[in-house]
Design a protein around this nucleic acid. Structure first.
Length: 321
DNA sequence: AAGGGACCTAATT
DNA sequence: AATTAGGTCCCT
């Protein structure tokens, strides 16, 4: 790959120099912000509603250019429609969800058009969510970023931003504990990440194949056999990484939503038994789309909780006035 | 079967 | 200073 002018080589690679491609997806079918900033992926950053991130070993710049189309640029390969198709699960028609005609889900979908569950691949989903317990999204994103920059294959620097692939399983299986706790700031999750990676490595391709071909209940068993991986993370992997659309990760929020707003009977707290009953209640109501329904409710609640309080609004006004 | 505490850290209240 | 953030494991 040679750069076409000395000017480019001085400035380095720029997104503007990479030929864009467009995909014909309406805003109501794919909303980038809602899909990339709703807690299911930790690999994307936005600048003015333009999204930058990495899928596999490629860097992407994605932007909605009109209500009918999104535009993307990818590096180093340029024409990778299939990668995005798979990542955004564009085979799934949101109309299927609407057709459930559910009194709670339909309003949630109206409030969050274009929110999609992603398809991120089982192993990366597992290893990134291994970093998620008792943590917040900002910190997880920083950790994953640090891990990739330091231990992942470098993809290149574009507009002076370095992009790197998520580290290989083999690398993470042998990551130095002090390094994972220090630079990546993983705390006690460093051990979970390392042991999960080692488990995947030791299982080899056959383990991954078995996981990918397993039905939901078996996939959960395979995953929860890994130390540090409980039912919640296992369901995240099943939903966000394996395409099990009826997997329902029950965290504190999804549990509370089920109990308080969907009226699912739940006298018990989030015990293993309570978890199972709550997940089943979601499946009973939303059938094969229970996981997607969960994502709409979860995101709606997350946005609610983010609303600034009156005091914060005043402070911001005072500062900018 | 359910409940409590530990585990890392940093932003928020 | 206490609480919270997409949990899990180990112990009563």
């Amino acid at each position: 790959m040679t750069l076409s002018s000395s000017r480019e080589s001085q400035l380095g690679l720029r997104w503007a120099d990479i030929r864009p491609r467009s995909l014909p997806f309406a805003a109501s079918d794919l909303d980038l912000r809602r899909s990339l900033d709703c807690g299911q992926t930790f690999r994307w950053r936005a600048v003015d509603d333009v999204w930058f991130g990495v899928i596999g070993d490629q860097a992407f710049r994605i932007e909605r250019i009109d209500p009918r189309r999104i535009e993307y640029r990818a590096w180093p390969s340029r024409d990778v429609d299939g990668v995005l198709w798979e990542f955004f699960r564009l085979d799934v028609d949101l109309g299927e969800l609407r057709r459930l005609d559910d009194p709670a889900l339909t309003p949630a979908m109206d409030a969050l058009p274009g929110l999609r569950v992603l398809g991120q691949g089982a192993v990366e989903t597992l290893l990134t969510f291994a970093c998620s317990p008792a943590n917040n999204i900002t910190r997880i994103t920083r950790s994953i970023d640090a891990l990739s920059q330091e231990h992942g294959q470098s993809i290149g620097s574009i507009d002076c931003v370095a992009y790197a692939a998520f580290p290989t399983t083999e690398t993470l299986a042998e990551i130095d504990d002090a390094n994972a706790r220090g630079r990546a700031n993983l705390g006690f999750r460093a051990r979970t990440l390392r042991s999960a990676a080692a488990h995947v490595r030791d299982g080899g391709p056959r383990w991954v194949d078995a996981l990918q071909n397993a039905p939901l209940s078996i996939a959960r068993e395979i995953l929860t056999a890994i130390p540090g991986i409980g039912p919640k993370i296992a369901d995240c992997v099943c939903l966000f990484g394996l395409g099990h659309d009826d997997a329902v990760p029950i965290d504190t929020h999804v549990f509370a939503i089920g109990r308080d707003t969907l009226g699912f009977p739940s006298t018990d707290s989030l015990t293993p038994r309570g978890y199972q009953r709550m997940a089943q209640a979601y499946r009973n109501r939303f059938g094969p789309w229970a996981g997607w329904a969960q994502q709409y409710f979860y995101h709606a609640r997350r946005l609610d909780r983010r609303l600034p309080r009156p005091s914060e609004v005043r402070t911001r006004h005072a500062r900018t006035a």
